[in-house]
């Protein structure tokens, strides 16, 4: 039983592993952000951002209801889809 070396192997694996996961996902964050920017700059969609309702600048109760309704519907659709896919 060479337990000290096993433990140190475990530590190395943990440091290297966590380090790598973070480096990789950090790079992915930057790559994704850059990709999104480039795509939206050079290949804009036909009707830009029509789907997203304008952020409720006016605190009218109607706009708030609307945003809430959208959220409810989005959540319901998501759940339905999730239920019917697995």
């Amino acid at each position: 039983m060479d337990s000290p070396s096993l433990i140190s192997e475990g530590f190395t694996l943990m440091l290297a592993g966590m380090g790598f996961v973070f480096v990789f996902l950090t790079l992915l964050v930057y790559a994704t952000t850059a990709m999104s920017k480039l795509v939206n700059k050079y290949i804009p969609e036909a009707q830009p951002a029509a789907a997203a309702p304008a952020p409720s600048a006016a605190p009218a109760p109607l706009a708030q209801d609307q945003a809430q309704l959208t959220a409810v519907i989005a959540a319901a659709i998501k759940q339905y889809r999730a239920n019917h896919k697995k």
Binding site: G17, F22, L25, T26, V29, T32
Partner: peptide, 16 residues
């Protein structure tokens, strides 16, 4: 994505 990275700590802690 950072949250997805942080949660992987469970994996490596378990190895330990």
């Amino acid at each position: 994505l950072f949250l997805g990275a942080a949660a992987q700590f469970g994996i490596f802690a378990t190895v330990l």
